[in-house]
Simulated scan of single mutants.
Amino acid sequence: MHEGILLLRLLLGLVLLVHAAQKSLGWFQGLGLTTMAGAFEQLGLRPGKPMVLLASITEALAAVSLLLGLFTPLGAAAAAGTMAVAGATSQLSAGSFWNAKKGGEYPYVLAVLGIVLAFTGAGAWSLDALLTTAYPQAAPFLGGTAVGLAVVVLAGLSAAVFLKVVLNRRPAGQPT
């Protein structure tokens, strides 16, 4: 079980780290800050550069948290919230849920993976496990049903807030 959780943390952490670098730095065949800023603005996320930086920093911090298994619910919440926003924004822009039509399918899957980690916790091979050995009273805050549900609510609220912003800032003539 713990091996599976470790693999999930590593996969999601690496995907988020690369995703952040693509967006902000142009690494890994990414578009970089300037081009992504224009794309964000077209989606209604303005001003573009600060929004790209906010998304990239959030994804990078979530990635580090998940890779280390340190304060995993916070990393999971950042991952789930950011990816829920990305999924909803993509779906709204494309008019489709499906990734083949440039919809939100893939970011939604990443958001759900973050939520899963909030429910399971980081597992035995993590800094959270060491933390709970030293401070057993921290255990209830590092995973479980209540933590997972809190992350679901937080991700949903962040997506709702950003969607409201996007809908209010969409260029004239663009479908809603």
Rank of each mutant, 00 (worst) to 15 (best):
E3M: 13
G4P: 03
L11V: 14
L12H: 01
G13M: 07
G13K: 03
G13Q: 06
L14W: 12
H19V: 04
A21P: 05
Q22L: 11
Q22S: 12
F28R: 08
Q29D: 14
Q29I: 04
Q29C: 04
G30I: 06
L31S: 12
L31V: 08
L33W: 07
L33M: 13
T34V: 14
T35A: 15
M36F: 09
A37D: 08
A37M: 10
A37I: 13
G38D: 10
G38R: 12
A39K: 13
L43N: 07
G44W: 01
L45A: 11
R46N: 05
G48N: 09
G48E: 08
K49M: 10
P50R: 07
P50C: 10
L53M: 15
L53H: 07
L54M: 14
L54R: 02
A55S: 15
A55C: 11
A55T: 14
A55H: 02
S56L: 06
I57H: 02
T58V: 14
A62L: 08
A63P: 03
S65F: 06
S65D: 06
L67V: 07
G69P: 05
L70W: 15
T72S: 12
T72H: 05
T72L: 11
P73F: 03
G75K: 01
A76Q: 01
A77D: 03
A77H: 02
A78Q: 00
A78L: 15
G81Y: 00
G81E: 00
M83K: 00
A84W: 00
A86P: 01
A88P: 02
A88C: 11
A88W: 01
A88G: 12
S90G: 08
Q91Y: 04
L92A: 12
S93W: 11
S93K: 12
S96N: 14
F97S: 04
N99D: 13
N99V: 13
G104L: 03
G104D: 01
G104T: 04
Y106G: 00
P107A: 07
Y108Q: 02
V109W: 06
L110M: 15
A111Q: 00
A111D: 01
V112Y: 09
L113V: 13
G114S: 03
V116C: 11
L117R: 01
T120R: 01
T120V: 05
G123V: 06
A124P: 03
S126P: 11
S126R: 11
S126D: 10
D128H: 09
D128C: 09
A129Q: 13
L130W: 14
L131E: 05
L131I: 07
L131N: 12
T133I: 11
T133F: 08
T133C: 03
P136W: 08
P136T: 05
A138Q: 13
A138V: 15
A139W: 08
A139T: 06
P140C: 10
P140H: 07
F141M: 15
L142H: 02
G143I: 02
G144V: 02
G144W: 01
T145A: 15
A146W: 09
A146K: 08
G148F: 02
L149F: 15
L149K: 04
A150Q: 06
V152H: 02
V153K: 07
V153Q: 06
L154I: 14
G156A: 07
G156E: 02
L157Q: 01
A159P: 03
A160K: 06
F162G: 00
V166S: 01
R169A: 13
R169L: 13
R170Y: 08
G173Q: 10
G173P: 10
P175V: 05
